[in-house]
Amino acid sequence: MAPQVSPLVIFIASIFTNNMILANFLGMCSYLAISSEYKTATGLGKAVSLVLVITAMVNWLVYHYFIVPLGLEYLQFIVFILVIAALVQILELFMDRYLPDLHANLGVFLPLITVNCAILGATLFMVIRHYNFLQSLLFSLGSGIGWWMAICMLAAMREKMGKAKLPPGLAGPGIAFLITGIMALAFVGFSGIFAVQ
């Protein structure tokens, strides 16, 4: 479909025009649940970006060197999910051993990320759009950064909102949905820059 698109364009596009949250609405559960504090939101954003890149790269290899040659395309969902779950577990062990400081920051988020739809979503987009390795790398990196940016924006606003007087009933998830919707509208403004769907 779009193998000729420059990886750099894909990178920028996946942050702005095709933002995981604000254009595709993927990974909403943790986006809404963990966005009341800026500090934790950044932690989660970093963890999602990291896992997204690693899983997308491994899944790219698995898809091209395992699924396609064996004709197992109809099993790709299960395979991708299993690979993601296994990778997250190994990543956690690895970080605990070699990067204890990073583990202390991101460790609690890792199990949560296993079921984040943005992770599986990025892998599936990459397959549907026939990205090559480099394109996939930059696409997943951009998607991760885009997700990170979106949750940080929401968390920063919600933190400020904590001091504001909100109409009862709107506080909490209600206002978070509204903010997300308005942010998504604002991001529509970017969609003229590239056409990469």
Binding site: A86, Q89, I90, L93, F94, D96, R97
Partner: peptide, 11 residues
């Protein structure tokens, strides 16, 4: 297998 190997090595 990969996970148990990783666990054995890393843990």
């Amino acid at each position: 297998l990969i996970i148990s190997l990783a666990e054995k090595k890393l843990n």
